[in-house]
């Protein structure tokens, strides 16, 4: 079943034509990755999906429902959670307060099971739950941002460059967790510059170049694709 459908979106920043007709689909239960160089439009695609920037033409559909009508804040209620680039934790709030904010869109207030769940995924956060999140390390902030997004019970999680600025050992940990989250049933759209890592965890992948999808295939074939190897995996 197609969970998320992005069809031929054109997004502009002022006069700059950032996305020139991007189309992609994410099936329920998949990890799909969007790889590309700096400025290719990866982040813009995510921002367009969750409504922070509106496309000039084209549409985004979640479970068959067009999201054009909805302002950014209400798209969360539809089931899309985003972990923004550079983490974007609320620096002056504690870890617990950040997690509370993640559940802002929920109608119920039975969060205990969810705290339990995110603390199982990220034991480090449990140790630091009363610490101000601005004082966490980069890796911990990334974990917190992901945990916060999970608090909203999303049907699809958008991750923007989760490995950015992290030490290699932490990158491994983050990607293991992405797989774990997916196994629990959350669909994931992953934007990454670290193409090798992204393609190893994903089912399928899209390659974005200057605002256009130039290639799409399952992850394994992309990994062995000559052009991908040359441009993104640094192999000759």
């Amino acid at each position: 079943m197609t969970l998320l459908e992005v069809n031929n979106i054109h997004t502009y920043y002022g006069n700059i034509h950032a996305l020139k007709g991007v189309s992609l689909t994410v099936e329920k239960g998949e990890i799909v990755t969007l790889i590309g160089a700096n400025g290719a439009g990866k982040t813009t695609t995510l921002r367009t999906i969750c409504g922070l920037t509106k496309p000039r033409s084209g549409y985004v559909k979640l479970k068959g429902e067009d999201l054009a009508e909805y302002p950014a804040h209400s798209i969360v209620y539809k089931g899309i959670s985003m972990v923004p680039e550079g983490r974007g934790v609320f620096a002056r709030l504690t870890v617990m307060e950040n997690l509370d904010m993640g559940a802002y869109s929920r109608k119920d207030n039975k969060f205990d099971a969810d705290f339990e769940r995110v603390f199982t995924l990220f034991p480090r956060l449990k140790e630091r739950r009363n610490q101000v999140s601005g004082t966490l390390s980069g890796g911990e902030q990334q974990m917190l941002a992901m945990a916060r997004a999970l608090m909203a019970h999303p049907s699809i999680l958008l991750l923007d460059e989760p490995s950015m600025g992290l030490a290699p050992v932490l990158v491994d940990l983050i990607f293991d967790t992405i797989t774990a989250i997916n196994k629990e049933g959350t669909t994931i759209l992953l934007v990454e510059q670290n193409a090798l890592m992204a393609l190893s965890v994903a089912n399928r992948g899209y390659v974005l170049q200057t605002g256009q999808i130039v290639l799409s295939d399952d992850a394994k074939s992309l990994k062995s694709n000559e052009m991908v190897q040359k441009a993104y995996l640094g192999m000759e």
Binding site: C50, L52, P71, A72, H73, S74, V76, Y77, S81, M82, P84, G88, V89, F90, A91, R92, L93, E97, D100, M101, G102, Y104, S105, R148, A152
Partner: peptide
């Protein structure tokens, strides 16, 4: 209150606050 929390979230980062479901 819930409103107070959303003010503080907005103060920290408007975009992320919006992505949490806060009506700016």
């Amino acid at each position: 209150s819930r409103l107070g929390r959303s003010w503080m979230a907005m103060r920290e980062d408007e975009d992320v606050a919006e992505a949490m479901g806060i009506h700016l």
